[in-house]
Design a protein around this nucleic acid. Structure first.
Length: 908
DNA sequence: CCGAATGAAAA
DNA sequence: TTTTCATTCGG
């Protein structure tokens, strides 16, 4: 990312191309995607169109034949880099930590330390990484059937993707694909349809094409996913388990094409969102998918329509329908009425179709949607008292509306937009088509209610609308929406988030997370709670994803609506985003939007209600924003993950969550994990994200465990840069983070826990063993692990002295001096008491700093007496006093930690 | 672009 | 058995 500096040779292709390739790569490879994303944010838009065209063409041309090949070859793609092995994953996940601990260390040094950690790492933990690596590899291979690992010496590979990576990333070989071949890549088949699909629509679309495209995109993706994915899921649950990655891989391949189109649209973000939604849906299951797709579509539709609250309401209704079916409505209103209405609506819809049906509206839904919209419009215009839904609902009326009112034209315009979306939805949802039909009824009811509310709101618009100038209004609304969207997009690209946006997003996030169930309720409660709930929910979801309850209140519903649609987004992004950030902004943000968009609403309505009611336009914007935010979050995530690693505090939070999930999952069943993740993240957009999730889910051992010395620092360091959320957290509870870990760990594996690693960066695995042993059996263990990998290398390693940089920054051969001693000490200590590591932790936590408390701490603390701790502390202090530099964590820690450890052991 | 680590896979 | 290459980024 940052380093884009060096353009190597690749310049040949030129930057412009370079970018494209990246994208392609992204598209092709989920994994890569994240990186690309980093770059892409800004760049994406630029070449989107062209790329799209190319892609489409390419695809179209050789879908079948080349599919795999063409993609690889032509599409610059070049496949992705070979999948990372367990160790690399470990490194990737922990390098940042190491760096934090040892800021001065260069990567090589960090790598060494990582190697040490890896060596020490508990076998179980290792296994996790190995499993992950394997899964990742499988997914990768699935995505890239023909992928060859080592193209012998094909360095040329780079040439193909030259510029793309600032770094050298070589795509293993683009050419490979061609050579290799192409095993038919499954994705391709799927892709084709999508491409075709997407292609047609975009061209047709006019100015709104962007939005439409985005919508299509979203839809298209879902469809593909639905088609393929669903079957898979249903067929083989097993796949599902693995599926997330695989699916991602598949999706990624699919998406790749779509991406290009989406890119065209400035709304790349949207597009991504759509993708995400689709992806999530796939992951989640059919229903979720629908929802996601719908939500995305709806959102798009909303944006397009941009009509005020009415649209919003409709969408909401729809969403609610989709998500809940009529449950909510039922809750709210009499079911009976609903049923009746439903029937009517269905009828109407059919009729409408018959009438309008014609080409454009092929789908029932569309007709419905249109109808709804029209109705709304009618309401507005007519200033009719919508109170009687029946009238509106009634077919005749509707028909009349269409025919009689000028609205019709308006509706027509709206239709276009909508139609695009719905149709796709239909495709996506085919199975559920029926369900959809039913929905209208439900929708109608809500609408009614909404209408009433709307009336108030609408009134202001109503004046204008009174004459449903449709076009004018729409345009305005649409324009406004578009503008808002654009704005949001730009903001995203810039990285600037309006407070408003943030505020909303957070809400959304919260809701979504809990949304499944908590829905409205969640929204109300403080966000923090929500998060906690979310976690729980997510767990629950594992078993059942279905979103059940909805808030009884319409208002709440309206608010909640956003949730369903957004949920995916929110989920994705939110987890990452630190609660802290999100929360505060939310309130302000909400307020602002209202002011701007809904002037009168605010006035008329109460604070929240007004907000909710007002949401109309604002809501749209928010939605768009939310999408953007989610996207942005994803991007950030990718960046962070790739670039900074821990740096982001936000991530820290996120990581924690993921952590919890992971751990829980580990302890529990993987399936649950995945499901949870999926659910929780619903929106995990891309494969990348998926990968990231998993990656993140991988246990991240606190340096403390490995390195005692670092203990204090690492944590701080993690956040040092950012301070933000985690820092605060950490600050609060010395051990908050750890406590979390513990919590999770406890849930999962009380004993195993993270402890596995000890302080010793240098120390051999035995420490780990001890840690493990502790719970189970204090093995003597000093045994080393079997020299696993390249023994040779290890041998070398042993021989080689690690360059350790002291706090001062100077490098010293660690092996001889520092390391050795510590090791010895450790060894001694270990044998004596398995718990030694605990001792270290305790010492730190208690003595040094409160926050340091590691998860283990508690247990440990229990074991150790205060006196022992005090002693340890004293010891540490002494050492410190001697060396006294706080900064020196790096250098000193090694020695220091060990000493304490020994003491602790001795005490015990 | 090298390197430092490990590991998987290809040659 | 040896090479490649995956990640990371300072030098």
């Amino acid at each position: 990312m940052k380093g884009s500096n060096r353009n190597k040779d690749h310049s040949t292709e030129g930057e412009g191309e370079g970018k494209r390739p990246k994208r392609k790569c992204l598209q092709w490879h989920p994994l890569l995607a994240k990186k690309l994303l980093d770059f892409s944010e800004e760049e994406e838009e630029d070449e989107e169109e062209e790329d799209i065209d190319k892609v489409q063409l390419l695809e179209a041309d050789g879908l079948e034949q080349d599919v795999g090949e063409t993609e690889d070859d032509e599409s610059p793609e070049q496949r992705a880099r070979r999948p990372m092995n367990a160790f690399l994953l470990f490194c990737k996940r922990h390098r940042s930590l190491v760096r934090q601990e040892h800021p001065r260390l260069d990567n090589r040094g960090a790598t060494k330390i990582l190697a040490d950690w890896w060596a020490v790492l508990d076998p179980k933990e290792k296994q996790k990484y190995t499993d992950m690596a394997k899964e990742y590899k499988d997914a990768f291979m699935k995505a890239n059937p023909g992928y060859r690992w080592c193209p012998t010496t094909n360095k040329p590979v780079k040439s193909p993707t030259p510029t793309v990576n600032p770094r050298k990333k070589l795509w293993a070989f683009p050419s490979d694909s061609s050579r290799e071949l192409p095993t038919p890549k499954k994705a391709k088949t799927e892709e084709v349809p999508q491409l075709n699909f997407g292609m047609a629509d975009p061209t047709q679309m006019g100015g709104l094409s962007m939005l439409l495209l985005a919508g299509e995109h979203a839809l298209g993706t879902p469809e593909a996913s639905s088609g393929t994915c669903r079957p898979d899921i249903s067929e083989s649950p097993e796949l599902r388990q693995k599926s997330p990655l695989f699916q991602f891989a598949e999706i990624s391949s699919r998406t790749s094409h779509p991406d290009a189109p989406s890119k065209q649209c400035q709304a790349s973000a949207l597009f991504q969102f759509a993708e995400i939604s689709s992806s999530t849906s796939q992951l989640g299951g059919t229903e979720p998918v629908k929802r996601c797709g719908n939500s995305a579509l709806f959102q798009l539709a909303e944006m397009c329509l941009a009509s005020e609250g009415v649209k919003m309401e409709d969408t909401k209704l729809i969403k609610s329908k989709e998500s809940d079916g009529g449950r909510i409505e039922e809750m709210e209103k009499g079911k009976e009425e609903r049923d009746i209405k439903v029937e009517k609506t269905t009828e109407t819809s059919f009729q409408k179709e018959a009438e309008f049906g014609k080409s454009a509206k092929g789908n029932m839904r569309e007709s419905k949607d249109l109808r709804d919209i029209e109705q709304l419009q009618m309401d507005n215009v007519m200033a009719i008292k919508v109170e009687d839904p029946k009238e509106i609902r009634k077919e005749p009326e509707d028909d009349q509306k269409y025919s009689h009112f000028p609205d019709f034209s308006y509706s027509a315009s709206s239709k276009i937009i909508i139609s695009g979306v719905p149709s796709r939805k239909d495709h996506m949802c085919h199975p559920h088509g029926i369900m959809i039909i039913e929905d209208p009824t439900t929708l109608n009811k809500p609408e009614k209610i909404k209408k009433k509310k709307k009336k108030n709101k609408l009134d202001r618009h109503g004046n204008d609308k009174s004459t449903p100038k449709k076009t004018c209004k729409k345009r305005q609304s649409s324009e406004s929406d578009i503008e808002s969207v654009m704005y949001t997009i730009e903001a995203v690209a810039k990285g600037d988030w309006g407070v408003d946006k943030l505020g909303e997003t957070p809400r959304k996030k919260v809701r979504p997370s809990s949304s499944g169930k908590g829905g409205i309720l969640d929204a109300k409660p403080p966000k923090k709670k929500v998060k906690s709930k979310e976690k729980k929910v997510s767990k629950e979801k594992c078993s059942d994803i279905t979103k059940e309850s909805r808030p009884p209140d319409f208002l709440s519903i309206s608010a909640s609506k956003s949730v369903p649609g957004e949920v995916p987004e929110g989920i994705k992004a939110e987890p990452l985003t630190p609660t802290e950030d999100a929360l505060p902004p939310s309130l302000p943000g909400q307020a602002k939007p209202e002011d701007s968009d809904c002037h009168r609403k605010t006035e008329t309505c109460g604070s929240r209600k007004s907000e909710r009611s007002c949401k109309g336009a604002l809501y749209k914007t928010l939605v768009s924003e939310g999408m953007l935010t989610s996207l942005r979050a994803n991007v950030d995530r990718g960046k962070r993950s790739s670039g900074k690693g821990n740096s982001s505090d936000h991530e820290g939070c996120w990581s924690e969550e993921s952590w919890t999930f992971n751990q829980s999952g580990t302890s529990g069943s993987k399936k649950c994990k995945k499901k949870l993740r999926e659910d929780s993240f619903l929106g995990s957009a891309k494969l990348d994200e998926e990968f990231e999730k998993k990656f993140n889910s991988l246990p991240q051992y606190s340096p403390i465990t490995f390195d005692r010395k670092c203990v204090s620092t690492p944590r701080k360091k993690k956040k040092t840069g950012n301070m933000s959320s985690e820092s605060t957290k950490t600050s609060k509870g010395s051990g908050d983070k750890w406590s979390h870990k513990q919590f999770f760990l406890d849930a999962i594996h009380p004993t195993e826990a993270i402890f596995s690693e000890d302080k010793s960066t240098t120390e051999p695995a035995y420490k780990v063993k001890n840690a493990l042993s502790i719970p189970n059996t204090p093995e003597p263990t000093t045994m080393q692990e079997p020299l696993v990998g390249s023994q040779k290398r290890k041998a070398r390693k042993t021989k080689i002295t690690h360059l350790v940089r002291t706090a001062d920054g100077r490098v010293s051969p660690a092996g001889g001096t520092l390391d050795d001693k510590p090791k010895e000490q450790l060894q001694r200590s270990l044998p004596k008491v398995p718990e030694t590591y605990c001792g270290d932790n305790c010492s730190h936590s208690t003595v040094e700093e409160p926050r340091s408390s590691t998860p283990e701490m508690p247990a440990v603390s229990a074991f150790f007496s205060l006196a022992a701790l005090a002693e340890v502390a004293a010891m540490e202090n002494v050492h410190r006093g001697q060396r006294s530099t706080p900064l020196t964590h790096d250098g000193q820690p090694k020695e220091m930690p060990q000493a304490p450890v020994l003491i602790s052991c001795a005490d015990q």
